[in-house]
Amino acid sequence: MRVTEQIDALEIMGVNAPGYLISPKIIAGVSMIPLLTIISVVLGLGGGYLACLTSHDIPTTLYLDGLRDGFNHVIVTVCAVKSISFGFIITSVCAYFGFYTSGGALEVGQSATKGVVYSCIWILFADLVISSLLL
């Protein structure tokens, strides 16, 4: 959008372009990544149950007991904190690089790469910090 002057067009109309373009992405990331995490957790546990049910190697009652015994509420907290933080990092880092791209098609590609690389690095770092603080 920067390269094709669309951000300039927003600014000329008096729109606060960073707020207008970046905040919806961050809201989406912070709310949807946790939702995706919940879905993946439910699918994972449900998949385990189904596997027990079809293979008959482990009785399903044993599986459910195992789930209950091994449950530690801290894991849920860590899961929630991580998914929210990672959602924030992915969207804000990528939006930052996108917003300040200048030049042409080449720079757009470079910014996309930078966005992915930097968000990966930040996620590893946040992972370390959150795990060492909460676990």
Binding site: T4, E5, Q6, D8, A9, I12, M13, G14
Partner: peptide, 16 residues
């Protein structure tokens, strides 16, 4: 003041 400005950019800058 900007609400009174209309601008056409060299590359049109339509929101795609």
């Amino acid at each position: 003041i900007r609400t009174h400005i209309g601008m056409l950019f060299q590359n049109s800058a339509l929101f795609d």
